[in-house]
Amino acid sequence: MLMGLLPVLMIVTVGMRRAHEEREDAQSVGPTLAELKAVGRSADPVEEIRRAKQTRRFPVEIRRPTGPPVIELTEPDPLGRMGRVACTTCHSVRPPNLSNQQPSDLDEFHAGMPFEHGRLVCYSCHNPGNADTLRLADGRAVEYPQVMTLCGQCHGPQARDYRRYSHGGVNGYWDLTRGGRVRANCIDCHDPHVPRFPKMIPTFKPKERFLVTTRDDHTPGLRFGGGTGHE
């Protein structure tokens, strides 16, 4: 009985202390803060932020797939229908072949697809029991929109950095009291089958006024053309 009451009591006391603190804050900081705002400076920035956070915060949205992938048919299916089909359309009638490990093992639909993802095989991630879901290492199924859970089980440091915004693209507001954010999903940047970030061609180069050409070696290719234009 006594043991049961203890947590309740603790919650109550903690709650009271919090309320008390907040009152104190309101009393001591309130008027000065208004003053400080007037001159555009803050004495205690952390306090300022804490207060700001009590106000409404905009959501952080992570882009994600809406569901399992669908395939545009390029020719009519055996029943003569066109359109988009789900994975299960085919895979529900074909038993999974666990010996298929690499694209080279495939001789039908997926033949020739690029695949370079460490030593993973198809069913490392795809669920043999339900083609419209994915599968974690412990055998639990994961829906496609939650694909990041699947990535995170191997890529721990990246998943941690992602949670802390040290990995992955962001758009929107740094200040969530003013606006929300949209974040990229793992698969926005990394093709799960070929996760290495693709090579890019830098197309935009600033010119140092006289930089006529760019040479692709160590030496910056700078030439002087006397291009003063107004002589």
Binding site: F210, F224, G226, T228, G229, E231
Partner: peptide, 16 residues
């Protein structure tokens, strides 16, 4: 006077 009017593009100085 030309330099002031057209800008210092008339010189060969750069940001470097």
């Amino acid at each position: 006077a030309v330099q002031v009017t057209h800008g210092m593009i008339t010189t060969n100085m750069t940001d470097s």
